[in-house]
Design a protein around this nucleic acid. Structure first.
Lengths: 206, 206
DNA sequence: AGTAGATATTAACAGTGTTAAATATATTAT
DNA sequence: ATAATATATTTAACACTGTTAATATCTACT
């Protein structure tokens, strides 16, 4: 059955070529210039061919999204692992989240800012074992550890989502409105984290 | 010269009709379905006519953006004015920001989430006397008042931008990823505000 | 009535995502 | 080797998008 295997391998190869091309265009020319025809041009196939490997453009974006989430998960989990205290582990992970977004804006946009919600269900992105799932669990657990140590009664999930909202806000605004008169970037980020995490060090009420 | 006046009036009228049509389509069918041809259809003119009144689509979006900012400014400044303490004034203004975003998602998207930064300069949106300018000043001053009362040494602008990032994050994520398993919305918002503002009540270091 | 100037339209360009139908290619069976 | 079958790929089109050069129409004034 090696012929079938080879065919599957070739099919998988072209599939990967399409994703590679899409990723390349995305990172080189930005989100706006990523088109099916351009991907086709790059892989030297007709645009229609792509539709035999992916349902539609959003399907491709979904895969790039999953891929980007894997990268994000790696950089965040790596950043946290070297720290000693639970608090610093959380803090440097959060910092890594922001740094990922600022250093890879197009990947970040694909994950969190693209209009894919109508096509790609959150459920499929968050499915068991996925990078997004692991990322959520990682963050939630770090929050839980910090809350436990400070004997807080706050709900870990709520705090996790709150922190997420905060850091997404920073990244999204800095990326999306780069010409706003922002204060010095480092100061904005660090002050933000200080304020955001200050409430975690003492007992909460809900 | 009343003929010239009438002509100017008519010109201005059609200009308004275009904006009205654009706004209507935006709010009824969403951001994705707002096209020049659709606006033209609605006002019963050819698509080209629009280009005699606006430079391009982004120009129209810019005007809708300014308009939306005016609405946002109104609802936020109204919300804060009724409160007594500086802290509550800030808090309810922030809450109004979030509520505006959640109740008028398409308007919010136009202001803060649309890809207009390449076409519409932040400078033109923030120009002296504009709603955006007034909104920034309003928020910044409220933050300043709170920081002054708590004898904080934190930089008001930095804190303002931090708070903005936080609340934008909440709105952007809730709007953009509605199918994520969020905790109860009210709880998320209120806990977030509590945590975010907790750091303002005591002395800072930067 | 004829003309200058403003205003609006037609028709096209270059692009987008997507799909039905036709074709080319490769594999299998005779 | 040839015919039949599956698979893979492309052509050509549809229905859109924003935008613009050239053209037509309408209006006001001489």
């Amino acid at each position: 059955m090696s012929i079938i295997e080879r065919k599957l391998r070739q099919k998988e190869s072209l599939r990967q070529q399409i994703l590679d091309a899409a990723r390349e265009i995305l990172l080189a020319n930005g989100y706006a210039h990523l088109s099916m025809r351009r991907i086709a041009e790059q892989i030297e196939y007709s645009p229609t061919t792509i539709y035999h490997y992916f349902i539609n453009k959003e399907d491709i974006l979904h895969h790039l999204c999953v891929e980007a989430l894997e990268r994000q998960f790696e950089s965040i989990s790596a950043a946290g692992s070297s720290e000693q205290s639970t608090f610093l582990r959380l803090r440097s992970s959060i910092r890594a989240y922001i740094d990922f977004g600022l250093s890879e804006p197009d990947r970040y946009k694909i994950i969190y800012m693209a209009d894919i919600s109508q096509y790609v269900s959150m459920a499929s992105i968050l499915e068991e074992g996925s990078a997004a799932n692991k990322l959520c669990k990682l963050m939630r657990n770090m929050v839980k550890d910090v809350l436990f140590e400070s004997a807080s009664t706050l709900d870990p999930e709520t705090v996790f989502q709150t922190i997420w909202a905060h850091i997404h806000g920073i990244v999204a605004l800095l990326i999306g409105r780069p010409d706003f008169p922002w204060v010095e970037r480092e100061k904005l980020i660090e002050t933000g984290l200080d304020l955001s995490l200050a409430g975690l060090a003492r007992k909460g009420t809900g």
